[in-house]
Design a protein around this nucleic acid. Structure first.
Length: 95
DNA sequence: ATCCTGACATTAT
DNA sequence: CATAATGCCAGGA
């Protein structure tokens, strides 16, 4: 496996500022991941101490099994979700 | 090695 | 708006 990438991804995710969000695609592009799928995999394995809730899918909706919790965490940071979707035009993080 | 699965993205129906 | 089809990569059975 690729520890280098693993670590870069964690760093990028920890860089996302409070109150803002990023997409898996963004993280993948910045960290240099070959595909966004790996981001989710990495966070699932090791994201407990990272702001993983600030990472959403390209359309602003979180993965089904996390939907409730994630939107709750985001709401606590001031990121308001329109139903199950977050308005990326407003909250998307741009480095 | 093959097949299936998944915290994905894009494009086309 | 909702599905489906592809492309993508790593792990597990």
């Amino acid at each position: 496996m690729d520890e280098e990438l693993h670590e870069r991804v964690r760093e990028v995710v920890s860089t996302v500022p409070l109150g803002k969000v990023a997409t898996y695609g963004d993280i993948a592009a910045i960290a240099g991941a070959p595909t966004p799928r790996l981001i989710g995999r990495i966070l699932a394995e090791d994201g407990s101490d990272l702001p993983w809730h600030r990472v959403l899918r390209a359309d602003g909706t979180p993965a089904p099994h996390l939907r409730h919790r994630q939107l709750e965490l985001l709401r606590a940071e001031g990121v308001l979700a329109d139903g199950q979707r977050v308005n990326l035009r407003t909250y998307r993080w741009r480095p």
